[in-house]
Structures are given as C-alpha cells and as structure tokens.
Design a protein around this nucleic acid. Structure first.
Length: 595
RNA sequence: GCCCCAGUAGCUCAGGGGAUAGAGCAUCGGCCUCCGGAGCCGGGAGCGCAGGUUCGAAUCCUGCCUGGGGCACCA
C-alpha cells in the first residue's frame, strides 16, 4: 500500500506532478493518493515515475496496464511533459519538458518548494547532560541529531521548543553535598540554623566538581555510612533545605556555564534549560492523585503503576513511581515532566532524542502517561533513539587508557586534525594564523557532524577522525569545499560585473540534472522530519554538491559566450548555494567564506 | 529466560513493497590550455540462512544463526 500523503501542502515539483496524477486517478474513480509521483528509479528511462496504477488496479480488481492507460488518457494538461509512457506491469514514466523544469527552478524562493505543515507545538528533549559532570562523547549524538531535527521541524512551520532536560535532581547531588560537607564543614550551606544570606559566588568551580564527583560516587559505593548521608542529603535537598538548595544552585550554575561553551561550539542551542528539578513542585500532587485515582499501588514497598495490558504478549515490568524509601526517581520526574510540558507548555508532540538503550524506560513512561491521562491520547510521545559513537574496535568510544573522552577533547581532536589537513593540502596559505584557526574550527566541526549525521540516528557508527576530516569523498569538508567554490565563482562573476538572469531551459545534461536535484529538497526535508532522521538530508547535501561538481565541470561559466546562458548559470549557482546553505544549516553546519 | 535493535561490496555506511540494490574509501583504468584537481569519467565487487505473503520483497511475516543492547528502587 502507498502511504497516504498530503501533497497539497507543498509546491514541490513532485507534489505538483502528484496533484496532476491524483486528479487523473480521481477521474477513474480511484483514490487520489495513487497519483503519488516519485523520482524515477531508472534515470535512464525517465525523470519521475508513478507506480499507483498497480495497487489501484489490485484494489479495483482491474488490469494494471488498463488502469495506467486510463490515467494517462485522463491527463488534461500535458504541457509539462516531454514524455509520458507506460512500462512493465504498469509503471508510468514521466519526463518533463526543459521549459517546465527551468521555469520551476526560476520560480524557487527561499523555501525551495517546501511547504509549511500544520503547526504543532513540539517539545524536543535532547541533551540530557548531568550537572557536575563534563559533557562526554555520549552526549554528542543526542545533541546534534536533536538540534538538526529541531531545525527541520521549525523550517516546516512547527512551533518547536528545545529543552536540554538537565540531569540535576538525583543521587549525584546528595553525594556531592555530603562530600562537600566533609571537605568544607565550615561553609554556611551546612549550618542548619542559617536559611539565607549565602555567598553569591560558588564555593566550587566546575573543575572541582569534575574531580570530586567521581570520588564521591566511588565512596558511596564502598562506604555505607557515607552513602546513607548522601541519600539523606538528597531527600533534604528535594524537600527544600535552604543551604542545600543554595549549594546545589551554585553547582548547577557553574555546570551550565561550562556546558554552554561546548554546546555553543557545536552550534547547539536550547530554548529551555529545564531539568529534572524544574518539576519538583509537581511531584507530590501528581503522586497523590495517582494513588487517589487508583493507578498507583504498593509492590515490594515501592509505589508502582501497572503498564501491561491484556493485549500484550510480551512482559512489560510495572512503572516504578516511588522507591520503597518514598523518594522519587527519574521515572517520577519524566512523568511529571510530561505533565508539565502538556499543561504549561501546551505540548502536542514531545520528541526524546535519547540513547536507544533507554527504549524500555520510555515505553513504560509513555504507557503510564497515557494510562493516567497525564498525556491525553492525542499528544504524541516519541522516543527517537540514537546509537552510540564507537571506537575502531566497534565498542563505545574510549580513550587509549579506557577512560571516557570528553566532548571538548573529541572536538579538539577533530579540529586539530582538520587544521593538519589544511596544512597538508597547502590550503589557506595566504590567511593569517587567526583566520586559519577559525577555518579549522568550522571545517573540523563540519567533519565531526557530517561524519555522525550521515549515519541513521539509531545505528552505532565507528568514529574515524582521519576519514571524517578527509577532503576526499563523502565528508563535511567536501561539502564545505563545494559551497566555498560556489562562493568563489560568484565573487569572480560579481567582480566582472556579471549578474544572474532568468533560468533558461537546460541544454546540457549536467545542467538539467542539477535542476532536478535542486527540486528534490522538499520531499527530503519532509522525510527527515517524518523519521526524525537527519541522515536523509545529509545524503541529499552530498548529492547536491556532487551534482554541482558535474555541472561545474561541464559548464564553464566565465568562458560562456552566450550572455543569457551565462546569466542563467550564475542564477543556477546562486540558487544552488542558497539551497545548500539552508541544507547545511538544517544540519547545524556552518559554511566559511573561504578555506 | 524474555524483549529490543542490527546483519547489504574488501572496509565504513545509505536504501521509501516496485523496474537493473546505491554512495564514499580502497582497488584498477582514463581526463589537467579550463571559474579552486579537495575535481570529473569509467571498471570489478554485495542483500546472514531457510521458508512464507505478494503480480512484485533488502524492505512485510515466521523460524534459525551471528553480533550489540535492555530487563523496577542508578540515570
């Protein structure tokens, strides 16, 4: 079956054609959706194809070739088509006239044919870093995949809010408070008599926390007395003990400041810096209601919600609402966060860009949310899981000594390698050291992001700094090179007083293919949004640059003697650069002026 | 034990029930009077196994094999 599509919403080339064929199917008493036109799988035969005659015939109990004949006969306006033909069991092959294609490209605006979807209030939950711990490799994918999908959804007209959703409310902060109390017992935060007037500056820097946290965590593991104090500290923190809250606020502030530096470098920007603590005020009322309404019951001393239903053939463990000591935990917070997002933010769609290994957890949370009415049925809760960044051994990436690599170190590594590549290739030789460093930063980040985003979000991939920073092949640097070369051409034509003119009907294969490529953008963006998977648009970026390179090879703009043709080509370069820049921006990748 | 995900070219990965399964790297062979050769053109090479559904399956279903991951008081 064909998936139902609402192609009225866009003005894309394929959508225009789909509308024409949809009408033709409708005159045959068949569903319009069978008119879906897609890029041909056989470019040697046609540019586009419509396969709807086969499923339509099956449903109508007719012969597919007859249906296709009927559809072709029903097309009233054949002016866009250079050729329409029937092939095989019922494929309709479509080739456009050069004039129709050129006129379509000529009419493109800054949306490149993409329509706006019905706006949904969408919360994108990505990041999820823990306070007091430096960002590490594990935070890379969620950040850049979430950022890209956020941008894509926004481009398509959705009302999108990105939330970092900090891990800021669990055991680590009890452990840190207990650890700090041991080390600095005289600090005012630990004086139970004092309830305000705490210092404004933090007693600990982020570097202190990064050293202290692992030590405290280890201690809690081996020292039961310490662990008990840490647990007690969490309870008091969550209950609102002023000194603990003030200290916690310091830890949170210095952590966020450190994280922002890394996220800014990645071009990842959150609208909300909410965290688990944000919904603390909701916990007690929510739990009380869930108990009162009979959803939550006691099991082994803990409070749980049954989330398995009669239809389930598999085992789903109950949702843990409160621990047996009465404390809340991440499940509680995630549920209350849904309540918060629905009630306070008006969320219609909540997307979680979190490691795929959290799959069962989210399934439980979503089931609990729907069952209890915290999420109304029409609210979409979706876990867009991401895989891991692996080392050469195909296991999650580690440093040589087995430790976790911080995200900052990872970025530095790629940027340094990109800088070496620039030197090796004797590029940017005329630039000063500062500009070179800026270029290396942009190129390195493009290499890192494109190396990641070209993989499907849910698959693991092998991190290979040499491959990612290579200037050959399907890499970030190659894409930037393509964009920079376009800029270079436009600078050159501009300096010669040459301007863009109307797009003429293509008279070379490479010119036509570039136009056809430019026209594919809308469906790619929609597919990216639908699957919450930036690899589709990453693939498209490569195809676009590759198509441009062929055009560049075949159509020498400066040498072209026909002024109208030359102006048309300049216009084509302008449109290609503009679309590519948009595509790269949707991936969160910046383009330098020169490199 | 149960559940989830994956297995596609030598390597790293795409792939939307449709025709002849695509890229990049590597490899072999071509192309520099030319806007930036970081390029372009071409060759060889592949869907884990066995069934099933379908006019049509890498794609959907079942079983098996292999690998990774997850299974309430950590997040």
């Amino acid at each position: 079956m064909l998936a139902p599509r609402r192609f009225e919403e866009t003005m894309s080339l394929a959508a225009n054609l789909s509308a024409i064929f949809g009408d033709a199917f409708a005159t045959q008493g068949l569903d319009r959706s069978f008119g879906l036109v897609v890029v041909s799988a056989r470019p040697d035969l046609a540019q586009f194809q419509c396969n709807g005659a086969m499923p339509a015939a099956k449903r109508a109990g007719r012969n597919p070739r007859d249906v296709a004949e009927g559809v072709l006969d029903a097309i009233t306006d054949e002016s866009p088509f250079a050729e329409l033909s029937l092939a095989g069991p019922g494929f309709i092959n479509i080739t456009l006239t050069e004039e129709y294609l050129a006129s379509y490209i000529d009419g493109l605006d800054s949306r490149y044919g993409a329509g706006l979807q019905e706006a949904k209030k969408t919360i994108v939950d990505y990041g999820g870093p823990n306070v007091a711990k430096e960002l590490h490799v594990g935070h890379l994918r969620t950040a850049i995949i979430g950022e890209s999908v956020k941008r894509v959804l926004r481009f398509l007209g959705h009302d999108v809010v990105g939330d970092v959703h900090l891990g800021d409310w669990g055991m680590p902060y009890g452990q840190l408070i207990a650890e700090l109390e041991d080390r600095f017992p005289d600090l005012p935060y630990f004086d139970e008599e004092q309830t305000d007037g705490y210092p404004e500056t933090s007693p600990v820097a982020i570097e202190d926390l990064q050293v202290m946290y692992p030590e405290a965590a280890l201690r809690a593991k081996n020292d039961e007395e310490f662990a008990a104090r840490a647990r007690a500290a969490v309870v008091e923190l969550q209950a609102g003990r002023p000194g603990y809250r003030a200290l916690w606020q310091h830890m949170r502030d210095v952590s966020i400041a450190a994280m922002k530096k890394v996220y800014d470098r990645l071009n990842v920007h959150f609208d909300l810096w909410y965290g688990e603590s944000t919904i603390n005020h909701r916990l007690q009322p929510m739990v009380k209601r869930l108990v009162d309404d009979g959803y939550a019951y006691e099991s082994d001393g803990a409070l749980v919600i049954e989330v398995m239903t009669d239809e389930d053939t598999k085992e789903i463990p109950p949702f843990l609402l409160l621990k047996s000591d009465g404390a809340s935990l991440y499940t509680t917070w995630d549920l209350a966060t849904i309540e918060d997002r629905v009630e306070d933010l008006g969320a219609e769609v909540i997307l979680y860009f979190v490691d795929v290994r959290q799959g069962l957890h989210f399934e439980q949370v979503y089931r609990a949310a729907y069952k209890t009415g915290i999420a109304p049925e029409e609210v979409v809760l979706e876990h867009a899981g991401n895989g891991t960044v692996n080392g050469p051994d195909a296991k999650p990436f580690r440093t040589r000594d087995g430790g976790l690599l911080t995200l900052r170190e990872l970025i530095d590594m790629v940027v340094a390698r990109a800088g070496e590549r620039i030197e090796e290739n004797a590029l940017a030789t005329e630039f000063g050291a500062e500009e070179k460093a800026q270029i290396a930063e942009i190129v390195g980040l493009a290499a890192l992001k494109y190396g990641d985003l070209q993989n499907h979000r849910s698959s693991n991939y092998i991190f290979d700094v040499d491959r990612f920073t290579s200037f050959d092949g399907k890499t970030g640097p190659y894409l930037l090179y393509g964009a920079v070369r376009m800029k270079s051409i436009l600078r050159e034509t501009g300096s010669r007083g040459l301007a863009a003119g109307p797009i003429l009907a293509p008279d070379r294969e490479q010119e036509r293919n570039l136009m056809l490529q430019l026209a594919r953008f809308p469906e790619v963006v929609e597919r990216t949004a639908e699957h919450r998977a930036p690899n589709h648009i990453a693939e498209y970026a490569y195809e676009l640059v590759a198509e441009f390179s062929r055009f560049y090879e075949a159509c020498h703009i400066l040498k072209e003697e026909d002024a109208a043709r030359q102006a048309s080509w300049i216009g084509l370069v302008e449109r290609t650069l503009a679309e590519l820049t948009t595509v790269l921006d949707l991936l969160g990748i910046d383009v330098p002026e020169r490199m």
